[in-house]
């Protein structure tokens, strides 16, 4: 089944300058009882976003109308902890298309790529510049160009290239999904099984 394509994105950013944001913060475990992929966006960062009665906490960035956009910019080691793909579903469900950080946890990175959400790993310095630019002007935009693997802070023109596995890049650019790929090489898998079972 095809995933959403990602080619190029120009957007304002939502800053979350906290390190080690774990998947329990992205989507707390008590929301994992659903049996479909939909609806997790409403509970993205639930315990930071809402008070006990479910009212939005004014000081949390998602409740601050100053900031909006399809790019979440977060402190280093984003997505550590549990393997729950619900974290990626929540971020995508909220409307983000890319997450920028200086470091991502492994499983989260895989889960994101499998849902058309692009993790953009930048240097610590570039991340700091991004945070400063957004603080200075919440309307500051970035351009993320997957084909050229480049992120540009538009107000300054400063850019940095980022890494992505060539196979995953192709999947995202074209909306291909891993399972279709693997189902197409069934003969090779069968041959391997015959030789090893």
């Amino acid at each position: 089944m095809p995933i959403d394509k990602f080619v190029k994105l120009e957007s304002t950013c939502v800053p979350l300058p906290i390190e080690n944001v774990d998947t329990d913060q992205i989507i707390p475990a008590r929301f994992l009882k659903a049996t479909t992929r939909e609806g997790f966006g409403d509970n993205l960062f639930a315990d930071w976003r809402y008070d006990k009665s479910g009212n939005p906490k004014k000081d949390f960035v998602l409740n601050d109308t100053t900031y909006s956009g399809k790019v979440l910019v977060a402190g280093q080691n984003f997505g550590s902890g549990s393997s729950r793909e619900h974290a990626a579903w929540a971020i995508v469900g909220y409307g983000f298309k890319a997450v920028v950080s200086s470091f991502f946890a492994d499983i989260f990175k895989n889960n994101s790529l499998n849902n058309g959400l692009l993790p953009v790993q930048v240097s610590k310095e570039f991340l700091e510049e991004l945070f400063q630019a957004i603080e200075k002007d919440p309307q500051a935009k970035v351009e993320i160009d997957l084909d050229n693997q480049k992120i540009t802070l538009l107000p300054t023109g400063k850019s940095e290239s980022f890494d992505i596995n060539p196979y995953k890049k192709k999947c995202l650019l074209n909306g291909f999904d891993d399972i279709d790929y693997l189902l197409n090489i069934n003969d090779e898998i069968e041959a391997w099984e015959k030789a090893h079972d």
Binding site: S83, E85, N114, I179, L182, N186, I189
Partner: peptide, 14 residues
């Protein structure tokens, strides 16, 4: 550990 898309991948293709 793997995510749910990967769970489906393993179920479908081993």
């Amino acid at each position: 550990g793997i995510g749910t898309s990967e769970v489906e991948m393993v179920m479908a293709t081993q």
